[in-house]
């Protein structure tokens, strides 16, 4: 009797301990980043383009715009494809195509982001002899895709078969079951995977180095080189000049704020709609 109670108490302690510990690195990193980057954070920073070393008022507006544009296109391409593929894998999971897809998605999930960048470079940059935002978006889509697919598959595997049977009983076609019951019905769960994927891809540098390349100027043109926050941060952080290094940290703060905002806004957005499963 006591043994069970003791096990319970140990378990409680472990859970609380480990959970609190997960917040420690988050706190440390945020504190470090904000301390280093706070000094340069200003409206100037958000709305101005970069200046040379020694000149005041430089900013990263071009990188902010570039990042947002690239991520927007990448999300539109990869998230629907990923959700559909993930649903396919959980519904038709015994078919040949599903096994092949699963293997390939697994390989893509483990591919370093630089290899994805190299692939996008060879396919979209070299033939057209131009760096472009589209190539950058493709590279980021390939980063987002496996995460969305895999998490959608995992989440849908846990939906009880009764839901699908109810759909069939109502005369739904497979497509309707797919769309209404599985995807729409598990919006929040699928969204978790989507947000995880988008958060990760917004912070990736390597895929963009050889594809979107980077730009010193503000550009809205995805057909040519376009800047992005991770690349700009990387360039500045590697330079010897202290003001650029400080701006790199500030860029990091801005990037984190943007990703946080995406996280929180989408969670609010989805939890307002109804869910059709047993939550």
């Amino acid at each position: 009797m006591y043994l069970r109670k003791i096990k319970n108490i140990i378990f409680w302690c472990l859970v609380v301990g480990f959970t609190l510990s997960t917040f420690v690195p988050l706190f440390l990193i945020l504190k470090h980043t904000i301390t280093m980057g706070w000094s340069e954070l200003s409206l100037d920073f958000i709305f101005n383009t970069p200046r040379a070393v020694g000149e005041l008022g430089g900013g990263m507006s071009h990188a902010i715009v570039g990042s947002l544009m690239i991520i927007f296109v990448a999300t539109i391409i990869s998230v629907p494809v990923g959700i559909v593929t993930g649903t396919f894998l959980s519904e038709f999971s015994n078919s040949r195509l599903a096994s092949i897809t699963r293997t390939f998605i697994g390989i893509l999930a483990g591919t370093p982001s630089i290899v994805i960048g190299i692939f996008a470079y060879v396919t979209l940059v070299v033939p057209w002899k131009s760096f472009s935002g589209w190539a950058g978006s493709l590279a980021l889509s390939l980063v987002i895709l496996p995460i969305v697919t895999r998490s959608t598959e995992e989440v849908l595997k846990l939906v009880p078969t009764t839901i699908r049977e109810a759909g069939l009983a109502l005369g739904f076609t497979k497509v309707k079951i797919f769309y209404y019951l599985l995807i729409k019905g598990n919006k929040r769960a699928i969204l978790t995977g989507v947000i995880l994927a988008i958060s990760r891809s917004m912070g990736e540098t390597a895929p963009l180095l050889f594809t979107a390349f980077g730009n010193v100027y503000l550009s809205y043109n995805l057909n040519g080189p376009i800047s992005s926050l991770p690349v700009q941060i990387f360039n500045y952080a590697s330079s010897p000049h202290l003001e650029w290094q400080r701006q790199a940290w500030t860029g990091a703060v801005v990037l984190i704020i943007i990703i946080f905002a995406v996280n929180i806004v989408s969670k609010i957005f989805v939890s307002n709609s109804s869910n059709a499963s047993n939550r």
Binding site: P50, L209, V216, S238, S239
Partner: peptide, 28 residues
């Protein structure tokens, strides 16, 4: 990466004289 800062400085100063050319340089 070595000349990146001076090139950026030069591009910015040069643009004051010749405004219709934009030089973009990335230190890869």
């Amino acid at each position: 990466t070595f000349p990146y800062p001076i090139y950026i400085k030069w591009f910015s100063e040069y643009q004051k004289e010749v405004s219709n050319v934009k030089f973009n340089y990335q230190p890869m």
